[in-house]
């Protein structure tokens, strides 16, 4: 505390701040190196072999079955993997937009005002609080042919009792999307509503006075101002949805056949059923490279426009 900034130069101040920043970032850097270094090296190493635990040797002896890039070549030949990746992409690109749309609708309704807002706010957030594996069990039971959903629909339409959800390829896919939308629309709503709340009220009021109707106010003024929030909300869901596992594992285990098998479920089966650990390593490295490129592109693209939008 002997240091007195009053007498310090701007340089000294800057140096002090940089030192602090380096210290603050240190724990994260250590954790990152800790978790990345060994697993990455091991994955790269065994991905170049055919090693599986069935060889009866430990992983560091994997060189005995050295096979260069054979596992990576297999990635291009493996229809099971292609199917799983395709279904995962399809799943993300259907579920996330629906979650976004419903979340935005709810946020808009709340923003315009509803009765008993705190109560509804809490109720709508409830699905988020349910452990996904539990949600999987709930929806597994709900979507049984003799389950509560068909019974509920059956009140108005007799044919409902004939709908078999989880044993039909397309309907099972719909069912898992419904479950995901149910669980994660609340998060979308939470983020988007918080974003809307931060739109300055005086601007909205001014627009009202100028005769803008609800739709104009919402789409012309509010939405453009929460672009960054929308980006975060969608980004968050795309990332998590891409990895979906727990709920699917409980609800369908990827079935019927492989109709709802996501990339994570495919990796699970390769890991624990086929025990193809070197192949899983190769898939992991490939996924890492592809995602890194995508993430880097998105990050560089988005850091620029968001800077300009802040100027207003």
């Amino acid at each position: 505390m002997s240091y007195t900034p009053h007498t310090g130069t701007a340089d000294a101040l800057a140096a002090q701040r940089r030192t602090l920043a380096r210290r603050l970032i240190l724990p994260t850097q250590i954790l990152l190196v800790f978790i990345v270094a060994f697993p990455l090296l091991m994955q790269v190493y065994i991905s170049l072999t055919w090693w599986t635990p069935l060889d009866g040797t430990l992983w560091y002896s994997a060189y005995e079955s050295w096979n260069w890039f054979d596992n990576f070549a297999e990635i291009f030949r493996d229809p099971g993997l292609h199917g799983a990746v395709w279904r995962t992409i399809l799943f993300v690109s259907i579920a996330v937009p629906i979650e976004f749309g419903l979340g935005l609708l709810l946020a808009a309704l709340f923003y315009e005002g509803v009765l008993a807002r705190p109560v509804f706010y809490s109720l709508i957030l409830m699905p988020m609080m349910i452990v996904p594996a539990v949600a999987g069990y709930i929806f597994f039971l709900i979507f049984q042919q003799t389950g509560p959903l068909n019974a509920l629909v059956g009140i108005v339409w007799d044919g409902a009792y004939q709908i078999n959800w989880l044993n039909d390829v397309n309907r099972a896919f719909i069912a898992v999307i419904v479950a995901d939308v149910w669980q994660w629309t609340p998060l979308m709503f939470l983020i988007l509503f918080a974003g809307l709340m931060s739109v300055p009220h005086d601007q909205m009021r001014a627009a009202t006075i100028l005769g803008a109707n609800w739709r104009q106010r919402f789409f012309r003024i509010a939405l453009p101002r929460i672009k960054a929030v929308i980006f975060i909300a969608i980004g968050l869901r795309v990332i998590e949805c891409f990895k979906i596992f727990d709920m699917l594992f409980v609800m369908t285990s990827g079935g019927p056949g492989v109709a709802t098998e996501s990339l994570s479920l495919y990796l699970y089966k390769q890991t624990f059923q086929s025990l193809e650990w070197s192949y899983v390593a190769a898939i992991g490295i490939t996924v890492l490279v592809v995602l890194s490129v995508i993430a880097a592109i998105i990050l560089t693209r988005t850091s620029r426009p968001s800077n300009t939008s802040e100027a207003s």
Binding site: D168, G255, G257, A259, Q273, L275
Partner: peptide, 22 residues
Amino acid sequence: FAGQTALDAALDEELQAALTGQ
């Protein structure tokens, strides 16, 4: 024998595909 889980899982998936009309 070794590879059992993989063999069973492969047959199982195909049978399920047949059972569900795929």
